[in-house]
């Protein structure tokens, strides 16, 4: 049958083909038919085969409808044409798109039969009017935004814990992305209810997760396979650190000056050195014990306060040209030496 259709030509030759076709099916009747033809007329010896040469195939095309893209109305509703995510189809998109790599100077191939355009994911179903209309549609399920949470500060105050996760959308056989499991929890340290000791301990517990410049503690968990598990884990970590920070262990009493988180001038040898120097300038030869040193009132020493600040800033702010210079100036004042030129 397919053979028939392929060779069907709506002209006089049709009958000939028909017979031939029929002949293929039955050889016995075929010979009988041959005989009939022979009886009717003589066969002409056509040496140059002139006849067949003239019998050229007349190519007639079937009527092809114009492209759908060309027939689209300019004011149509695009959301109806492309309602959901699907692979690019040239006839549905009335845009003169071109895509593909070509040697320099040539135009990239057009949109028809263009695999490059089909490979890439498209967002033709998410045009702004469609998004808008869909938002309108789901609005009935939403509640109103609380009017008191009208500023960033208010949100930060009432909801200090910030949980950061990422969703991934991509065109691949699976919609899961392993990166979506990662959960980050961020909280300002000042919003936690901590006293001096527990704050110090908390910072030591979280280590480099605390950023002193922004006062933010950032805890990230990615060890569990699901996001919900990671979220639970992050919350657990924060809770555990918080309660551990409030615990005071027995061994914490052994904390020495070297373990201090900041340099306290009053507890350090620098104060002793200054007091000793002061006593010597007054020719008082007395030795004090540690508590007396700590209790010594330095306000009677001129420039002692500035000296204290200079030494503390040298230790607390780190050693730099500025802190060293500042210290030098103060010490010169203390000793009554001329200023540096």
């Amino acid at each position: 049958m397919s053979l028939f259709i392929r060779n069907y030509k709506p002209n006089s030759l049709a009958t000939v083909y028909n017979t031939k076709l029929w002949r293929l099916n039955s050889t016995t009747t075929d010979s009988a038919l041959k005989k009939d033809e022979e009886e009717e007329e003589f066969r002409v010896l056509d040496i140059l085969k002139k006849r067949e040469r003239f019998q050229r195939r007349v190519v007639r095309r079937t009527d092809i409808q114009p492209d759908r893209a060309d027939r689209m109305a300019t004011d149509q509703n695009w959301g109806n044409v492309w309602p959901g995510p699907k692979t690019f189809h040239p006839s549905s998109v009335p845009l003169p798109l071109r895509q593909g790599y070509v040697p320099k100077g040539q135009a990239p191939p057009g949109k028809k039969a263009n695999a490059e355009l089909m490979k890439i994911p498209n967002f033709l179903h998410l045009t702004p009017p469609v998004v808008k209309s869909q938002c309108e549609a789901i609005k009935q399920f939403c509640t109103e935004w609380p009017s008191l949470l009208n500023s960033e500060e208010a949100i930060e105050k009432h909801y200090p814990v910030e949980v950061i996760t990422s969703d991934y959308c991509h065109a691949s056989p699976t919609i899961r992305n392993p990166l979506a499991r990662i959960v980050t929890l961020r909280i300002k340290l000042s919003t936690l209810n901590l006293d001096k000791h527990s704050k110090d301990k908390f910072i030591r517990l979280v280590g480099d997760r605390y950023d002193s410049t922004t006062d933010l503690v950032t805890i990230t968990a990615d060890r569990c396979p699901a996001r919900a598990q990671n979220l639970d884990y992050v919350n657990y970590l924060l809770t555990a650190c918080y309660h551990e920070a409030w615990n005071v262990e027995e061994w914490e009493k052994d904390k020495t000056e070297d373990d201090m988180e900041y340099y306290d001038w009053n507890n350090n040898t620098s104060k002793k050195a200054l007091v000793n120097w002061h006593l010597q300038t007054k020719n008082e030869n007395r030795t004090l014990n540690d508590d007396e040193y700590k209790a010594f009132d330095t306000s009677e020493i001129p420039y002692a306060e500035e000296y204290k600040n200079a030494v503390s800033s040298w230790f607390n702010d780190g050693e730099s040209d500025a802190t060293v210079k500042n210290y030098g100036e103060v010490v010169r004042k203390l000793f009554g030496l001329p200023e540096k030129k």
């Binding site: 350090n268 040898t269 620098s270 050195a273 200054l274 120097w277 000296y307 030494v311 060293v324 210079k325 210290y327 030098g328 010490v331 010169r332 203390l334 000793f335 030496l337 540096k340």
Partner: peptide, 11 residues
């Protein structure tokens, strides 16, 4: 530092 403190640093 504690041994020398207070000292005059000169660059």
């Amino acid at each position: 530092f504690e041994h020398l403190d207070p000292f005059v640093p000169i660059e």
